[in-house]
Simulated assay, not measured.
Amino acid sequence: MPPVPQHQHGFEQPSIWQKSEMGAMMGGGVGLTIGFIFGSWSIIRHGSGPRGFMATLSQYMLSSAATFSFFLAIGSVIRSDSPLALRMEAMQLQMAASNPILRSKVQSAHLIRARWAEERAARSNN
C-alpha cells in the first residue's frame, strides 16, 4: 500500500491540534445552544431560584458548553488518529488510478474472486 500523501490539492491538512480546536469550538457552540434551551426551559418551569435569571441561565449554558466542547475535542482527536482513515485515503488513491466507476458488477466480482484466490494461494504457501 503506498504512503498517504501529506499535501493534497495544493493545501496542507489540518494538524491534530487544529482538529481538536475545531471540535472544541463546535462543541462550545452546540453546548451554548443546548444550555440556553434547557436552561430557559428549567427557569420557566421551576423559576430562577435565589441566584436570579441571568446567573442560573449562564450556569446552564457554560456547563453545557464546557462538557460538549471537551467531548467533541476528544472525539475529533480520536477520529483523526484512526488508522482506518489513512487506509481509506490510500484505498481511494488506488481506486482512482484504476477508475472503478467504469467497471461493471461482473468485472468487479471477477476481480474480487481473483483477489480471494491470491489470498488463498498465499496462505497455502505459508
Rank of each mutant, 00 (worst) to 15 (best):
P3R: 13
P3E: 11
F38A: 04
P50A: 00
M88W: 02
P14V: 07
A85S: 12
A117I: 05
I34H: 03
D81G: 15
M22I: 03
S15V: 01
W17S: 13
G47S: 07
M91L: 14
S80H: 06
G27R: 02
A24V: 02
R120G: 07
S124L: 08
F36S: 07
F70R: 05
L57M: 07
S64D: 01
I16E: 04
F53A: 01
M91A: 13
K105M: 15
M25P: 01
D81H: 02
Y60W: 06
P50I: 03
F11Y: 15
G28Y: 11
G75M: 04
F38D: 04
M26I: 09
Q92A: 09
R79S: 13
L84E: 09
I16T: 06
S80I: 05
A109H: 14
N99I: 03
P5Q: 12
L102I: 12
L84F: 14
W116L: 11
N99P: 05
G31P: 08
E118M: 07
A73Y: 03
F71I: 11
N125T: 10
V77Q: 13
V4M: 00
S64L: 02
E21P: 00
S98F: 14
Q94A: 14
A96Q: 13
S58C: 11
G10M: 08
G75K: 08
R113E: 15
E89C: 03
R87P: 00
S20N: 01
L102F: 00
G39Q: 03
R45S: 13
A65L: 01
S48Q: 13
R79M: 08
M88H: 03
P83A: 09
V106E: 15
D81M: 06
M95V: 11
A117F: 01
I101A: 10
P83E: 08
G35F: 08
I44E: 10
S42I: 05
S98Q: 09
G39I: 02
S48G: 00
H7K: 13
P83T: 06
G47K: 10
S42D: 15
R51V: 00
S40I: 00
R113M: 14
M54C: 01
G27N: 09
A114W: 10
R87M: 07
L93K: 05
A122M: 06
A55W: 12
A109I: 07
G75H: 09
M25S: 14
I37Y: 05
P14S: 03
R79W: 14
S82N: 14
S58Q: 09
L57N: 04
I43S: 04
P100T: 04
R103I: 03
I44D: 12
A66M: 08
M22W: 03
G10E: 11
E118V: 02
S15F: 02
L57Y: 06
P3K: 09
W41D: 06
S104F: 03
N125M: 11
G29I: 12
F70K: 04
L84G: 04
R120A: 13
S108Q: 15
A114L: 14
S69H: 02
S58T: 13
S20P: 02
N126W: 04
E118R: 12
L32E: 01
W17C: 07
G75F: 05
